[in-house]
């Protein structure tokens, strides 16, 4: 059997190309990336994108339902009990929640990597102390620790960010320690140490770049959990304080109008679920793609 390659082959290759494309970029991942790209744009340009100021009240248009549910395009997602535009508040909330989660994840990663590296470099007693801290942190539900700290230390935005920064450091520390110990037993780290390099150089310039991909994946998996934690605290009225707004905060205040105006609560709730779902999916996908060793 011989087949003559003619231009009908191009149909196959186009099809194959599409199949190969979706093989490496599943549609779910593309949607997740698209949602996150939109969120990133909102974070960057929130004040320019939002149709209204998120604090602007319009008392004549209180509790307007969203468009298609009896409302109009003036307020696509309706308004809340003070006549504030839900879409504008949502955009600002996404911005605040994501920035908090990002800063906190950065703190957790810095803390985790530093302690993990300390344990790996010194071993012995320092390592035992770090491991004990990791166990202690993992033993207590973080929500409870966060609530207690807020009670004892009072509430402010910087404190909230730092507090969230203690979430998940223990997992990153555990991973960083394991990877650093494995890496420092490899030839390249030994060779650099034999050259007389300081621990800063060995860990900062050699081991860190070598294990960065795994660390980034575990940070990606930490990120949505921080969003959930912050929105939970804000929902309870103990996180971000008004007049500032965050996703959890919006759900918390919208809950009083669950009967008359459920959209106030449903819009930010959907935003939370979509965002955490997207980041988790991308995190899992990155892990499967780049780092099958992680769990």
């Amino acid at each position: 059997m011989t087949t003559i390659p003619d231009d009908s082959g191009s149909v196959f290759t186009a099809k194959n190309r599409a199949a190969a494309f979706f093989q490496s970029w599943p549609p779910g991942i593309l949607l997740a990336l698209a949602w996150l790209a939109m969120c990133a744009l909102l974070v960057a340009f929130a004040p320019h994108v939002a149709p209204y100021d998120y604090l602007a009240m319009d008392l004549r248009a209180r509790l307007t339902p969203p468009v298609f549910f009896g409302g109009d395009w003036a307020h696509p997602l309706g308004t809340d009990e003070l006549g504030r535009d839900v879409l504008s508040r949502l955009i600002t909330s996404v911005r605040i929640s994501l920035v908090i989660a990002f800063l906190s994840t950065l703190i957790a990663a810095t803390l985790g990597v530093s302690l993990g590296f300390l344990a790996a470099w010194f071993r012995g007693r320092v390592e035992q102390v770090v491991l004990m801290l990791i166990d202690a942190q993992a033993a207590m539900p973080f929500m409870i620790i966060a609530l207690a700290m807020l009670a004892f230390l009072g509430n402010s935005l910087p404190l909230l960010v730092i507090l969230m920064g203690f979430y998940g450091w223990e997992r990153i520390a555990r991973i960083a320690r394991g990877l650093a110990i494995a890496a420092s037993e490899q030839g390249y780290a030994t060779a650099v140490r034999d050259l007389g390099a300081t621990p800063w150089r060995i860990y900062g310039r050699h081991i860190l770049p070598n294990i960065a991909s795994t660390l980034i994946v575990s940070m990606t998996l930490n990120f949505p959990e921080v969003i959930l934690l912050e929105s939970g605290l804000s929902f309870l009225g103990l996180g971000v304080q008004p007049p500032m707004t965050s996703l959890g905060n919006m759900v918390g205040y919208g809950r009083d109008y669950i009967q008359s105006a459920p959209w106030i609560m449903l819009a930010p709730a959907a935003a939370i679920v979509l965002t955490t779902l997207s980041i988790s999916m991308i995190g899992d996908w990155l892990r499967d793609r780049f780092d099958p060793t992680l769990r």
Partner: peptide, 21 residues
Amino acid sequence: VMGFTVPSFVMGLVLALVFAV
């Protein structure tokens, strides 16, 4: 997957919205 991405307050409120309200 919902268990990881739907926070309990959203789940609780949605259940309340459907079954109570």
